[in-house]
Measured scan of single mutants.
Amino acid sequence: RDEDEKEKIKEALKRGNEDKAKEIAKRANVSPEEYERLRKEAE
């Protein structure tokens, strides 16, 4: 379940949809550090 959320965040970031990614991260309680890591992976 947690991994699904992280995949959704990465997908949103790949599409350049940072607002959606942040919204998912907030809902999934993803830490800022984890969010940054996902953002780097998505580049």
Results as ranks from 00 to 15, higher is better:
Arg1Cys: 10
Arg1Thr: 15
Arg1Ser: 14
Arg1His: 14
Arg1Tyr: 14
Asp2Val: 14
Asp2Ala: 12
Asp2Leu: 15
Asp2Gly: 12
Asp2Asn: 13
Asp2Ser: 10
Asp2Cys: 12
Asp2Phe: 14
Asp2Arg: 11
Asp2Gln: 14
Asp2Tyr: 15
Asp2Met: 11
Glu3Ser: 12
Glu3His: 13
Glu3Ala: 12
Glu3Tyr: 13
Glu3Met: 11
Glu3Lys: 12
Glu3Arg: 12
Asp4Ile: 12
Asp4Lys: 11
Asp4Leu: 13
Asp4Met: 12
Glu5Trp: 15
Glu5Ser: 13
Glu5Pro: 15
Glu5Gln: 12
Glu5Arg: 06
Glu5Phe: 15
Glu5His: 15
Glu5Tyr: 15
Lys6Pro: 04
Lys6Leu: 15
Lys6Ile: 15
Lys6Thr: 09
Lys6Asp: 05
Lys6Trp: 15
Glu7Gln: 14
Glu7Tyr: 11
Glu7Met: 14
Glu7His: 12
Glu7Ala: 14
Lys8His: 08
Lys8Tyr: 06
Lys8Cys: 08
Lys8Asn: 09
Lys8Ala: 15
Ile9Thr: 01
Ile9Trp: 01
Ile9Asp: 01
Ile9Arg: 00
Ile9Ala: 02
Ile9Glu: 01
Ile9Leu: 07
Ile9Val: 06
Ile9His: 01
Ile9Pro: 01
Ile9Gly: 01
Ile9Gln: 01
Lys10Tyr: 05
Lys10His: 02
Lys10Ala: 02
Lys10Thr: 04
Glu11Met: 10
Glu11Asp: 12
Glu11Phe: 04
Glu11Asn: 12
Glu11Leu: 10
Glu11Lys: 07
Glu11Ile: 08
Ala12Cys: 05
Ala12Arg: 02
Ala12Val: 02
Ala12Tyr: 12
Ala12Asp: 02
Ala12Asn: 06
Ala12Leu: 13
Ala12Thr: 03
Ala12Lys: 02
Leu13Asn: 00
Leu13Gln: 01
Leu13Lys: 00
Leu13Phe: 11
Leu13Arg: 00
Leu13Ile: 11
Leu13Asp: 00
Leu13Thr: 01
Leu13His: 02
Lys14Gln: 07
Lys14Cys: 07
Lys14Glu: 04
Lys14Val: 08
Lys14Leu: 10
Arg15Met: 14
Arg15His: 13
Arg15Pro: 01
Arg15Lys: 12
Arg15Ala: 15
Arg15Tyr: 10
Arg15Val: 11
Arg15Leu: 14
Arg15Glu: 15
Arg15Gly: 10
Gly16Val: 01
Gly16Tyr: 02
Gly16Thr: 01
Gly16Ala: 04
Gly16Pro: 02
Asn17Pro: 02
Asn17Trp: 14
Asn17Glu: 15
Asn17Cys: 06
Asn17Tyr: 10
Asn17Ile: 03
Asn17Lys: 08
Glu18Ala: 09
Glu18Phe: 15
Glu18Arg: 06
Glu18Ser: 08
Asp19Arg: 12
Asp19Trp: 10
Asp19Glu: 15
Asp19Leu: 12
Asp19Ala: 15
Lys20Leu: 15
Lys20Tyr: 14
Lys20Thr: 10
Lys20Glu: 15
Lys20Ala: 14
Lys20Phe: 13
Ala21Ile: 01
Ala21Arg: 00
Ala21Phe: 01
Ala21Asp: 01
Lys22His: 08
Lys22Ser: 07
Lys22Tyr: 06
Lys22Glu: 07
Lys22Trp: 10
Lys22Asp: 04
Glu23Ser: 08
Glu23Leu: 06
Glu23Gly: 05
Glu23Pro: 01
Glu23Trp: 04
Glu23Asp: 09
Glu23His: 05
Glu23Arg: 08
Ile24Glu: 03
Ile24Met: 06
Ile24Gln: 03
Ile24Phe: 03
Ile24Ser: 02
Ile24Thr: 03
Ala25Gln: 06
Ala25Trp: 00
Ala25Ile: 02
Ala25Glu: 01
Ala25Ser: 04
Ala25Cys: 04
Lys26Pro: 01
Lys26Arg: 14
Lys26Asp: 10
Lys26His: 10
Lys26Ile: 12
Lys26Glu: 11
Arg27Glu: 10
Arg27Cys: 05
Arg27Tyr: 07
Arg27Ile: 09
Ala28Ile: 13
Ala28Gln: 07
Ala28Cys: 11
Ala28Gly: 07
Ala28Tyr: 13
Ala28His: 11
Asn29Ala: 08
Asn29Lys: 10
Asn29Ser: 08
Asn29Met: 09
Asn29Glu: 07
Val30Trp: 04
Val30Leu: 14
Val30Arg: 01
Val30Met: 12
Val30Lys: 02
Ser31Cys: 04
Ser31Val: 04
Ser31Gln: 06
Ser31Lys: 06
Ser31Trp: 03
Ser31Tyr: 03
Pro32Asn: 09
Pro32Cys: 06
Pro32Gly: 08
Pro32Val: 10
Glu33Leu: 07
Glu33Lys: 06
Glu33Trp: 06
Glu33Thr: 08
Glu33Arg: 05
Glu33Asn: 06
Glu34Pro: 00
Glu34Cys: 05
Glu34Trp: 02
Glu34Asn: 02
Glu34Met: 04
Glu34Ala: 04
Glu34Phe: 02
Glu34Tyr: 02
Glu34Arg: 00
Glu34Leu: 04
Tyr35Phe: 15
Tyr35Lys: 00
Tyr35His: 00
Tyr35Ser: 00
Tyr35Gln: 01
Tyr35Arg: 00
Tyr35Trp: 09
Glu36Ala: 07
Glu36Tyr: 03
Glu36Arg: 04
Arg37Leu: 08
Arg37Tyr: 06
Arg37Lys: 10
Arg37Gly: 04
Arg37Ala: 09
Arg37Thr: 07
Leu38Pro: 00
Leu38Ser: 00
Leu38Val: 03
Leu38Trp: 04
Leu38Asn: 00
Leu38Ala: 02
Arg39Phe: 05
Arg39Met: 06
Arg39Leu: 06
Arg39Glu: 04
Arg39Cys: 03
Arg39Asp: 00
Arg39Lys: 13
Lys40Thr: 11
Lys40Ile: 14
Lys40Pro: 01
Lys40Gly: 09
Lys40Ala: 14
Lys40Trp: 15
Glu41Leu: 09
Glu41His: 04
Glu41Trp: 08
Glu41Ile: 08
Glu41Lys: 05
Glu41Val: 06
Ala42His: 04
Ala42Ser: 08
Ala42Trp: 06
Ala42Val: 15
Ala42Tyr: 06
Ala42Met: 09
Ala42Gln: 05
Glu43Arg: 10
Glu43Phe: 15
